[in-house]
């Protein structure tokens, strides 16, 4: 990659993405070959909000490259609770480690941290902002199942607050991809993301009806709609029900080789019965996190 940090998916060129995905495929094919590549190096995991899954995925990737990890632990136990700034935390951690993986509730936090340190910073989620390492593993999975060019993808759920959606949408503008966004009106893509997609000349359509989109997409990327986004439970139940995937819905409307993806964890937006169908791609997607993050760390460390 050309950059020192991975802060947003917007910074990734097609060449950057392809380089990471190709390296990831090599690691995927032969994990042992990478065992000593980063021996003696240390990666700091700074998670200011809980995310067991992403953190474990980075830790596994680092260890498979031969690197060690140092973990800030939970925010409750750290100096953050005592009011230390993120900038100070980053500067202190820089002295311990060769790279920093940061998850933080505020948008722009990874950019801020990167301005105060000389080691690479990976944004592992900044509030409703970006989650670019998730995007790389999403792209890897899409490439395996449908290819990244001449792609038709449906992205459904909470498009307003869903950072995985924002990052994926940005990254897909590098490819010949038609993006169909499906959400209730209140959870549409934020203005800033629509602005970027427009600037990038992306092929974008917005929908409210999932059934109408299903027959026309190769990939369906599902995200969770959270109860707290709605003023009352009834409204939430109505929307959640409308976008809930079941084997029956898929059998009736989707093409046979549709790949259903989800950044996980899911709650009930995908019925458990879908897991046993050919559509289910989300667990494989999660597994892809390790080789993709290995490739990412390999290029930054």
């Amino acid at each position: 990659m050309q950059q020192d940090h991975l802060l947003t998916a917007k910074q990734l060129s097609r060449a950057d993405i392809e380089a990471v995905l190709e390296r990831a495929a090599e690691f995927d094919g032969d994990p042992d070959a990478a065992r000593e590549r980063h021996a003696g190096e240390l990666l700091a995991l700074c998670f200011f909000e809980p995310s067991t899954r992403t953190k474990m995925s980075f830790e596994t990737a680092a260890k498979r490259l031969g690197a060690g990890v140092v973990d800030m632990g939970s925010v409750d136990d750290s100096s953050v609770k005592k009011g230390e700034s993120l900038a100070d935390t980053a500067r202190v951690v820089e002295g311990y480690a060769d790279g920093i993986v940061l998850r933080h509730p505020r948008q722009g936090s990874a950019k801020l941290a990167s301005e105060h340190v000389d080691v690479p910073v990976v944004n592992a989620g900044d509030g409703a902002g970006h989650h670019p390492s998730q995007t790389l593993l999403d792209l890897y999975t899409i490439r395996e199942h449908a290819g990244l060019d001449d792609l038709s993808i449906g992205i459904v759920g909470d498009l307003k607050y869903g950072r995985t959606v924002h990052s994926l949408a940005h990254a897909l503008t590098n490819f010949d991809a038609r993006q169909h966004f499906v959400s209730p009106e209140s959870l549409r893509l934020p203005r800033s993301v629509r602005y970027d997609l427009h600037e990038a000349g992306a092929q974008v359509r917005e929908h409210e009806d999932l059934e109408a989109v299903l027959p026309n997409v190769d990939v369906l990327y599902v995200t969770r709609i959270q109860r707290e986004r709605f003023p009352d439970d009834d409204e939430y139940e109505a929307v959640a029900g409308e976008y809930r995937l079941t084997p029956e819905l898929l059998a009736e409307h989707a093409s046979d080789d549709l790949a259903v993806m989800h950044p996980l964890p899911r709650v009930d937006e995908i019925a458990p019965e879908v897991d046993d169908t050919e559509y289910a791609t989300y667990f494989e997607q999660a597994h892809n996190g390790v080789p993709v993050r290995m490739a990412l760390l390999d290029s930054l460390l």
């Binding site: 700034s85 900038a87 505020r106 948008q107 722009g108 936090s109 301005e115 509030g127």
Partner: peptide, 13 residues
């Protein structure tokens, strides 16, 4: 204007 922005968190930004 975004209250969730890191520039509104008392950081040196």
């Amino acid at each position: 204007p975004n209250s969730e922005c890191i520039t509104n968190a008392g950081e040196p930004a």
